[in-house]
Amino acid sequence: MRNALSDPSFVKVACSSAGNAVDAVHEVAAQIDATDTCFALAFAPEGYDLDALAQGLDAALGGVPVFGCTTAGQITPQGYETDTLLLLAFPKAHFRCASMLIEPLAPLSIPEIAAMAKRHTDRFSHTASWNRLALIFSDGLSKQEDLLVSTLETVLDGLPIFGGSAADGLLFEKTFVLHGGRFHRNAAVLLLLETNLQFQGLGFDHFLPGETQLVITRANPEDRLVYEINGAPAADEYARLVGCSVAQLSPQIFAENPMLVRHNMNYYVRAVSDVTDSHALSFLAAIDDGLIMTLGRGQEIIETLEAGLSISDAQGRQPDFILGFDCVLRKLEIEQKQLGAAVSGIFRNRRVLGFNTFGEQHCGVHMNQTFVGVAFFESNKGHPL
């Protein structure tokens, strides 16, 4: 029996911390067998020449399709990292894949996206007894993820969709998705997957609604900007409510004092990315005039992480691996509290692999400060690589 810290059996993991894209590609390509690979996911650190990275992966893997995005950090077999190229190779024996590039995202045409996704799904033939899901990687600065994922949830008719928004190193300047041997801005990649493995989706955060409510009284929904909260300048009112000055507002303050919205009886985080010169708040998910929000109160982040990842299949088996999309603001809070080593240990133990995002998609909703994942389990018919 494999122990908790052994390598996963149904995905091949390759990593490189080389200082440039060319060397990184050589290192990860040497760690996988492209002939056995159906497709690969690449999660890129900040600072690489993206053209060199995309072209290098395309050439080195001999035509194996590679999808992915830029990130605000990677979750590797070692846990949290920030400067590592992570490549996940999904074997032909257990996966089938069909991809679609959605470009441009803004302006987003809902009828056009819906028609494209429907045609894409119809062309993807169903293998008997195999299970289906979808992954979505979108430009984290497009401000279109809310409409995109809700549209796809409707069109794909019950197909579970999981995803994360491409990110950068908290600069909030340029984020890219990878498709067709190129990195793209203002775009998204939709992947339809079939697998003979079993899978379970998961999504959780570590906040409960508090007693303090607030109302957005003036906003620009298209740009996700809030100018007024409770009739006062947004940054001033938010700072007052959380007990600090406007000058003290920072990603750490936003991470520890999130605002929640209620949707279908559940609460979801609407994270703030920064403060503008005019004291408006810039959000990472949808907002609107008249929206009622609640200040969240944090729970113990280690305990909620352990509980959220403690899943098993019908036979009581732990996942072979978990593909994870973890908000960068969670990582920021974890590092602020000096819990990075503990969280990395949990990720290693649970075989979590993925990246830090600017937003997460699950159950038709775009959210923030959440961990979203897909846990893959050996099926009764599955056999390791």
Rank of each mutant, 00 (worst) to 15 (best):
S17H: 01
F347Y: 15
A286K: 09
V275D: 00
A255V: 03
D83M: 01
Q299N: 13
P111T: 08
H26L: 13
F325C: 01
G340W: 01
E145V: 12
T35I: 09
H94A: 10
G359D: 04
Y268R: 08
S125H: 10
F137A: 08
F90K: 04
L249A: 01
A247D: 15
A239W: 05
Q338D: 08
L197P: 10
S312R: 14
I301F: 04
L281P: 05
E303R: 13
S379R: 08
A106P: 05
R317N: 15
F199P: 12
E46D: 11
L281K: 06
L260H: 14
D23V: 08
L170T: 03
M367Y: 00
I311H: 10
C38F: 00
S125L: 13
G181F: 09
E211P: 00
S165Q: 02
C327Y: 02
D49G: 01
K174A: 12
G290T: 04
I113T: 10
G340L: 08
L329W: 03
F162Y: 15
I136Y: 03
S16L: 04
F207I: 02
S6M: 14
R132L: 09
L61A: 01
K331I: 06
Q336H: 14
R182F: 10
F183P: 11
G296E: 14
Q31P: 12
F95C: 11
M116Q: 13
A42F: 11
A375L: 06
A307D: 14
V11T: 07
D168Y: 03
L171S: 12
S312A: 14
Q198Y: 11
H263I: 11
R262E: 15
F207A: 07
Q361W: 01
E378D: 09
E360P: 12
F43D: 03
P91H: 08
E211C: 13
T70I: 07
A219V: 05
I302V: 14
D49H: 10
G79Y: 03
L281H: 03
S138N: 03
L61E: 08
A234S: 11
M265C: 08
